[in-house]
């Protein structure tokens, strides 16, 4: 059975535009709650009632989503939701940024062996990547990182959930200064 708190969380999820965080839920409820537990209970309830929606843990928050089996119908009705897939070059650049962040454009170009300027602009426009600070050294180039929207787009909770990041890290273990502090914490 759902408690009034569950129903409030449900209402918050329905009205939220971005993933709901624990802080937001506590603020709205005016009390300290474990949103993760409440979400699990809500998801159990959704499973039992064969609800067309469920709560996904994404971008360090929670978001109410339709279940994948309804995708064809939703897509048919809202054609704009049939997302345009990212180009191969965009994905390549994004992969480099995601696994090696923060990186400069020169780093990306060096790995891909091609100029990535236009691709990088597209990724910034799509709010998948953002410039965060500058690298010390000649020219003080901009450093690029992935955004919370990147996590949402790929259905990841944190950047640590990227598949195979350990293998990638092992590959660059000799260049430890390039690894993300966040990634180090996951070890």
């Amino acid at each position: 059975m759902l408690s009034p708190t569950h129903r409030i969380i449900e209402a918050l999820l329905f009205s939220a535009r971005e993933p709901l965080t624990t802080e937001q839920a506590c603020l709205a409820l005016q009390e300290t709650v474990d949103l993760g537990i409440l979400v699990n209970e809500l998801n159990e309830h959704y499973d039992q009632s064969q609800s067309p929606v469920w709560i996904q843990s994404v971008a360090e928050g929670y978001r109410l989503m339709t279940r994948p089996e309804f995708d064809p119908y939703v897509r048919r009705l809202f054609q704009s939701r049939g997302r345009v897939k990212l180009s191969a070059s965009a994905l390549e650049s994004l992969a480099i940024i995601a696994y090696k962040q923060p990186v400069t454009r020169i780093d990306i170009d060096a790995i891909r062996g091609v100029d990535s300027g236009a691709t990088l602009r597209t990724l910034i426009e799509k709010n998948l990547v953002a410039a965060r600070g500058r690298q010390d050294g000649p020219g003080r180039p901009l450093l690029y990182c992935t955004t919370p929207h990147f996590l949402e787009y790929f259905g990841l909770n944190t950047i640590r959930d990227l598949p195979g990041i350990k293998e990638i890290e092992a590959l660059f273990s000799d260049s430890a200064e390039q690894s993300e502090p966040q990634q180090d914490a996951s070890e």
């Binding site: 999820l13 994004l94 259905g155």
Partner: peptide, 19 residues
């Protein structure tokens, strides 16, 4: 290869629609 993994995540996540 990482880009290909991102592609499969993209395709997987595209089937979920946010309320």
């Amino acid at each position: 290869e990482a880009a290909m993994r991102l592609r499969s995540l993209e395709e997987y996540q595209a089937r979920y629609h946010a309320v």
